[in-house]
Simulated assay, not measured.
Amino acid sequence: MIFLLYLAVGAFVGTLSGLFGIGGGVIIVPTLLLIFKEQGFSSDITMFMALGTSLATIVVTASSSTLRHYNMGNLLSEVTKKLIPPLIVGICAGAYLVNQVEARTLEGLFITYLYLVSLKMLFYKVKVDEPKEISNFLYAITGFIIGLKSSILGIGGGTISVPFLTWRGYEMKNAVAISASIGIPIALISSVFYIYSGFNKVTPDHSLGYIYLPAFFGISIASFFFTKLGAKISSVANQVLMKKIFAIMLILIAIKKTTSFIS
């Protein structure tokens, strides 16, 4: 029964990845926190398990979404290549910081992040123009911030990269494709850190470090197939309306998490 729930989560986040270029961590992490707590996971490791498992699933989700957008001609690989080096530095810095803070602190940071992303998606207006030149310095700063934030919060980089690229004049379809492509190194490198960090910890059966394998396989299998649906919708949907709907959903999740956090 739990595995079916993981499949449903995967179908949902796969669609979101193809539609918005996000890895789905903003949905996966709070959902896994609720499921893991119901399964009786220790509160000391629940947040780390949710983050590690989320990042592992994003490897599959982001790869599938990138492939779909590449086949549709949306991916601008030259932009991806400029973002990846500083992004890797940010990932490593974030992975180090994660091991220095308590799980409750990470949960509080994640809830705050949900509110910020929701408000940004509600009020940010996409302005499509001719692509503007992006300096190497701006690439470096943006890539580092994306990597740092993603590694700490267990999510892909779409909530920063998509607004950044559309602000610089790239079309939404290109911004989504680029965002999905940088999600691959984010998730892959971060997952390795979470596996390593959790090896000497007491974790549930069927875990690989801080990655819970039943959740990983269930979410990954469904998301792989549903990214195609999201990519197709992305080509025809009203992006402004879809983002507002998604933002409202995130606010509801954040409120739910806030209630459980302070109780």
Rank of each mutant, 00 (worst) to 15 (best):
I211R: 05
R104M: 06
D44Q: 15
Y124G: 12
T66I: 06
Y70P: 06
Y196V: 15
A50Y: 04
Y70A: 13
V128T: 15
A215M: 11
G24I: 02
F12C: 12
Y6L: 12
E130Q: 14
Y113C: 06
I58W: 03
G154N: 06
T259C: 02
F246Y: 02
I211K: 03
L76T: 14
G40V: 08
A215S: 13
I145K: 07
D205R: 15
G183I: 00
H206K: 13
K243P: 07
I28K: 11
I211A: 08
Q239R: 13
E130P: 14
G157K: 04
D129M: 15
K243I: 11
A215N: 10
P163I: 01
F144Q: 07
L75N: 06
L114E: 00
Y196Q: 15
F110L: 02
S77P: 15
D129A: 15
S263G: 07
W167L: 14
F3D: 02
Q100W: 08
I186R: 03
G143C: 06
P85F: 01
A231W: 00
S235F: 05
K125D: 11
A222P: 10
A187Y: 03
L4T: 12
I146N: 07
K244M: 09
F216Y: 13
P163T: 05
L5G: 12
L138F: 05
I219K: 13
L241R: 13
A231M: 02
E130Y: 10
M72L: 10
I152D: 10
K232G: 05
S197M: 15
S207V: 09
K120R: 14
